[in-house]
Amino acid sequence: MKPFVVVLIAIVAREARRFVGQRSRFIAALIRPLLWLVVFAAGFRAALGLSITPPYETYTTYETYIVPGLCGMILLFNGMQSSLSLVYDREMGSMRLLLTSPLPRWWLLFCRLLASTSISILQVYTFLGITALYGIRFEAAGYLSVLPALLIAGLMLGALGLALSSFIKQLENFAGVMNFVIFPMFFLSSALYPLWKMAESSELLHDICAANPFTHAVELIRFALYGQFNMSALLWTCGAALILLAIALWGYDPARGMIRRKG
């Protein structure tokens, strides 16, 4: 068990040092959702009214509604950003060196995934602290109960980036794929609009949003912030995380995946 723990600590510490050395990444991760909160939400405040739907027990402002979606945005962008660094590490050779460790490949990739998710959660809590200063606050218990939801959602979104990175050879190609994946996942979800609003526009659009794993990750976070449990969102998010992690493990298999093709 000790070698497993040592590798976990080493990988987390490496990611933490990299993150500390990239302060601009931390600032950029906060500016993006704050712009959406201050500018985008202000424009839609009067146009979009939200009825009383779970987990809300009363009428809620649009700014309050989109906060969980913006937390998901941070996890999504950071998950992709971390996977972008994985592609860079593979080009530089450090990823190949990591995978030659005698420890199981699944543990090495999971450690990397957990390290990036931990950093993402730190950024989400910083964002929630800023929103509290902005006037959007939750119960103290909500800030605690949302931690498992952030961890599960972060692992799922990080696994998505990990799966993509296992099949993309070049750094430039991955940067393009990131935008192709991030924006449809974000906009075709409940991050900005509730699903019943989507249904009013188009049943097909509603069904696409309902099948989007990011929607369920956002709803898991939304309910957790109010101290409530959403079993459906949990099952969807965990199921997507397991499938994506399995794809990543297959892609990084030296016998058939990207490592073999690079060799």
Rank of each mutant, 00 (worst) to 15 (best):
F77A: 15
C238Y: 11
A141L: 15
M95F: 12
V181T: 05
R45C: 13
P68E: 02
L164D: 01
L84N: 07
R32P: 08
A42Q: 14
Q170T: 14
N179T: 15
Y143V: 04
L192A: 00
I52L: 06
K262G: 15
G176T: 04
L144R: 09
L86G: 01
R137W: 07
L103W: 11
P184H: 01
I168D: 02
Y65F: 11
P104M: 12
N179M: 14
Q22T: 12
S82V: 13
S24L: 12
Y88D: 04
E15G: 05
F4G: 07
A159W: 00
E219H: 01
L242R: 12
V87T: 06
F138C: 09
G21A: 12
A199Y: 02
A191N: 01
F4A: 09
L245A: 11
L245N: 09
R14F: 05
L150P: 02
E172Y: 07
G251E: 00
G21F: 07
I121L: 11
A199Q: 07
M258H: 04
A211Y: 07
F180C: 09
L8P: 03
L37N: 04
G154H: 01
L225Q: 04
A46H: 14
F183S: 05
T126K: 03
I9P: 06
A175F: 07
S145V: 07
I221H: 01
G129A: 09
V5E: 01
A246W: 12
F127T: 01
F19K: 03
N173P: 03
L98A: 09
V177G: 07
P194V: 00
S145Q: 09
P54A: 06
T64Y: 02
R112H: 13
G158W: 10
M198Q: 12
L242P: 06
A240H: 09
I243K: 05
G49W: 09
R45F: 13
R18T: 14
L188Y: 06
A248C: 08
